[in-house]
Design a binder for these strands. Sequence first.
DNA 1: AAGGCGTGGTG
DNA 2: TCACCAAGCCT
Length: 335
Amino acid sequence: MFANTASRLLAHYRENARSLPWRASPGAARTDPYRVWLSEVMLQQTTVATVIPRFQRFLDRWPTIEALAAAEDAEVLREWAGLGYYARARNLIACARAVAQRGGFPETEAELRGLPGLGDYTAAAIAAIAFGRRAVVIDTNVARVVARLHAIEQPLAETRRQIRALMDALTPDEDVGDFAQAIMDLGATVCRPRAPRCEACPLQSECAAFASGEPESFPPRALRRERPHRFGAAWWIERNDALWLVRRPARGLLGGMPALPGSEWSDVPPAEPVLATVAHGFTHFTLDLAVVARSEPLGDGWWHPMDQIAEAGLPTLYARAVSAVLDARSERRAA
DNA sequence: AAGGCGTGGTG
DNA sequence: TCACCAAGCCT
């Protein structure tokens, strides 16, 4: 049964594989490890549609891992701006330099797992897709597909070992890169979290969740905690058509990224008059950021020309804050 | 080991 | 509209 399951997945993949800039055509035993690694890191918790153009820009700018390893930190962070989870960019730099130093990527899952930013999933994916090494590749798509195939009643967080054993049994000894991509594609496009398209699924006849009549109810959703709401102020310091920017501390929220200087987050809104306010959602809290005018530069920073603000590499929170102020200003001018 | 860590798309 | 979710990793 398991061998047939993998065969059906592979056959479905060969018919339906999406053409993606980092993906070799089905049947390729190996794929350029630099492309696989770069795309896999970008795809950590980030959608394919978002990654495609960003991957292309990175590859155009730094065609090899040696080129990326030689880049300035600030330039890599600038190119990453807007992608989120900025620790990935910091790890990307460290990983590129470690790999360039040792003369290329290691080919085993265990060695890959030791590189910065490569966890269980990414190390397994690179071993399988780039090097054709058998590895048990489990991302959230795979976990969901397997949980539905077996109608597992517990939340995923409680069944990691069971899912892993089932996926190990499902994983073939050959075509391992295609197989990993096949089952992830199935999860992304057919066995979706909501509104699964069971009518298009090659595994329908062997799926316990489908047989139950309520495939969407597997796996059960874990209860989520409420996101707190916070407030903050950012200082708008403008002089000679330039804006005063600072770099945030290397660790923590938006770590290492350029930003408007500002207050710590607070539980109450600022009392001062504001130029504009933006509401922004983070993973674990929502933020109302009020932009407040100041006259004197604060902290270590630099003057950034206003007409080049789009190239400053601001993370989305601050890019939106800048846009909000400029929009308010042009509306006032029009009035 | 449970929580910190971004952002955009969607059903 | 808005809650949910994404090719997770790190501490």
